[in-house]
């Protein structure tokens, strides 16, 4: 069973395994440095719980739930 980025709770840390999204969002994610092996930390959830903000290579990036479900992660460290 794969774990995806949207499953992270605030404070959790994980590493990118694979990006399954296609098209423009794939490019966008690559541009902000989200490549396999990259460390991500979930830092914020918006008032409605979606989108969430992640710490990615030193910057806070908000990603919607739909887009986060296409990002496979591994090595989750729960800190929440």
């Amino acid at each position: 069973m794969y774990q995806t980025l949207d499953s992270l709770k605030i404070g959790d840390i994980a590493y990118i395994e694979e990006i399954r999204s296609e098209g423009s969002i794939r490019r966008r994610l690559l541009d902000i440095g989200l490549t396999p092996g990259c460390k991500v930390k979930c830092v914020l959830k918006s008032p409605s719980g979606d989108p969430s903000a992640y710490l990615i290579r030193g910057a806070f990036i908000a990603i919607r739930k739909e887009d986060a479900t296409a990002i496979i992660i591994k090595g989750v460290e729960q800190n929440g």
């Binding site: 999204s21 098209g23 423009s24 969002i25 966008r28 994610l29 902000i32 914020l44 989108p51 903000a53 910057a59 806070f60 990036i61 908000a62 990603i63 919607r64 739909e66 887009d67």
Partner: peptide, 11 residues
């Protein structure tokens, strides 16, 4: 449908 979206929250 809503397209994908990334937004940077600068410090």
């Amino acid at each position: 449908v809503p397209s994908s979206f990334t937004l940077e929250l600068p410090p």
